[in-house]
Design a protein around this nucleic acid. Structure first.
Lengths: 376, 376
DNA sequence: GGCCACTCTGAATCGTATG
DNA sequence: TCATACGATTCAGAGTGGC
């Protein structure tokens, strides 16, 4: 670890053209590593980094309706190999480490394509992981070919400068208040960036991977105080800057592309900082848990092979391992089979089907209620 | 990458004492790497691995009421450094790679302490990540000190043997059925293992990190077929084996500690496998026998000369005697002509083209279903 | 305005059998 | 091995336009 650290430390460059004071609430144009190397050391409270994910997309993907998916094919996301990506990652992480205060923390966001490279590298550089936080997307893009699980989340790593770093900011009570007085968990349900918030040039997205402000809101509420400085080395269209300004924090943005910088400047200029007393009213909304029937089976509340019967004992059906039912000539969901055996157009399987316990019939909805109670 | 691979390949050991046949539904005692090296190559359908997390707990942790938290401090979770852990990880992953069929997949579960080491290592060994899956715990242990987010999830990596590996099992439709007919996402809400399911010796947990059966249920439902072999190189108290037996899959367990093996054997002996009819699960059209369109014509379900129309009555085509279609300027298969009239890159003719009966449109897929029913 | 139907899109490592 | 053809496959939310 220390070997990697000292080697990369050389990348910090000479201190000759180093700035004495941190330029604040500005976007600095250039390659993030060389710009970072010009900034004064230990001057930044928090770094939020959204580096290229190195997606390695191959062919074009079409939706079932034949429309084309507009994938990320920007030049900035192209790397020749894992090695090249690892070197890049180590270099910017090391440059970040120098400008971060000893009490500072680092956030990095990524997907399975790159996050294991990033996590590995930052642990090697002695960063100390405080949490990994899952951004659960309420509206992810589906998997169109039915080949995998819907890729419905991204991962953030939150880390301090070292295992024995003390005094980092974590606004525990503010987050708990935001979360209806329950501790904030490591999984966050937040929609993707769309609608008015999404920056466009005509009908084209300005940036392929603009992050939602709600995500940065929670990150900054958790790990910064008003007046703190947040640095974003992959500034893009400036979500970090916009939210920082709104929340009364300072930002430093680093970005190469002129088009992104212009869009970010315009966007941030339009942001009105909030009064401090307003901030405390924002709360996280709670999701209403949907409980699929298959979950009752998976959890053992209903066993595969168990026989369900309707309230008047006219029809029966047997539970299969995937949570579907099988009856005379039909199989399908609890609703489909319930409808089919009755010859009805539709049926609410939750109230239609029952389990027999000691001669008594119990609607399966009872088990769903039980599961909901456990979840929340 | 290839360097790491070939180097570790040496760890596969000599083939002199290698077994000819895979011993199935048994727990093999010993160090997982040397046991793996004795197994026949490419013999296993799926590997589920729950390796040591390398937790690096320093002091004992106390709850607000001063009771002691029973953390993981077992000898098997102690590593001297990241390097030692990385070497261990690479070695067992490489041994796993050898016994895995080319169509097989690998699951690894971990937390932020180790999952970045694991993910980095398996990418270096050319494993190809299919998904990372988040196990969201409905009842995690709270963070008692209020210094971080409640650590409410663990991460699983699901990977194929290489980027171009084909034919791995993913029971898309069964999982969709389990989830109320929406695609299964990459975030799974499942409670931790507690209650009757949790194995105990008196009032002490038998194993510090026993996984819930519901988690393995979903893993095995997703990525294995009945009769498949699942290998678990860190078998512990045998959750993988218990669920595999229940679901009509075979297991191979590897475990060092006698106490865990005994507990697992007793547990698995008490498991009753499900009946075959219950194990059957929802499959999609991909599994169904192929029926050429020409057969519908040949069998008289569709007559030569009949006019087909799309669902919105924008396009028509006429059926020729050889089962091809002819439309303005094009002729060819139902798919080719469907694509051509729309100007689309591709088209599923089975669902695109309809026949008009008494003013109602019926997709030609209905006739295919009919034929499939007859054939069986 | 309100409701309904329809359209569009989002960090995506998204096929397989046959010849 | 490679080219060709078959034919399987989507969820939530925002925007738009008609009645």
């Amino acid at each position: 670890m220390s070997k990697a650290r000292s080697k990369a430390a050389g990348a910090a460059g000479d201190a000759s053209n180093r700035l004495k004071n941190l330029p604040v609430d500005r976007i600095l144009q250039g390659d993030c590593i060389s710009v970072l190397n010009r900034l004064p050391e230990k001057s930044v409270d928090v770094v939020f980094a959204d580096p290229p994910y190195n997606l390695q997309l191959k062919d074009t993907l079409h939706r079932p309706d034949n429309s084309k998916v507009d994938g990320v094919d920007d030049a900035w996301d192209q790397f020749s190999s894992f090695q090249a990506y690892d070197r890049f990652t180590q270099d910017w992480l090391d440059a970040v480490r120098r400008v971060l205060k000893d009490t500072g923390t680092l956030w990095v966001i990524g997907s399975y394509h790159n996050i294991f490279r990033v996590g590995h590298a930052l642990q090697n550089l002695d960063f100390w992981i405080l949490n990994d936080v899952i951004w659960r997307k309420s509206n992810p893009m589906p998997n169109f070919r039915g080949t995998r699980f819907t890729n419905a989340h991204e991962t953030m790593i939150w880390a301090a400068k070292s295992a024995d770093a003390r005094g980092y900011t974590f606004n525990y009570h503010a987050l708990k208040t935001m979360n209806d007085d329950v501790q904030m968990r490591s999984d966050w349900l937040i929609p993707i960036c769309a609608g008015k918030e999404r920056l466009k040039d005509g009908d084209k997205k300005t940036h392929a991977t603009q992050k939602p402000e709600a995500l940065l809101y929670r990150v900054l509420m958790a790990s910064t105080k008003p007046g703190d400085v947040v640095l974003d080395p992959f500034f893009g269209t400036g979500t970090t800057g916009a939210v920082a300004k709104m929340l009364g924090r300072h930002f430093v943005g680093i970005e190469r592309e002129t088009a992104y910088i212009k869009a970010a400047q315009k966007r941030i200029a339009g942001v009105e900082p909030l009064d401090a007393d307003v901030l405390s009213y924002t709360t996280g909304k709670r999701e209403a848990p949907r409980v699929p029937f298959g979950q009752l089976v998976e959890r053992g509340l209903i066993r595969p092979g168990e026989v369900l019967v309707d309230g008047r004992r006219r029809y029966t059906a047997k539970v299969r391992s995937d949570g579907s039912l099988i009856a005379d000539r039909t199989k399908g969901s609890i609703h489909q089979v319930g409808a089919a055996v009755q010859g009805a157009p539709a049926c609410n399987g939750w109230t239609f089907w029952h389990v027999e316990k000691r001669g008594e019939l119990m609607p399966i909805d009872v088990f769903r209620q039980q599961l909901r109670g456990e979840i929340h």
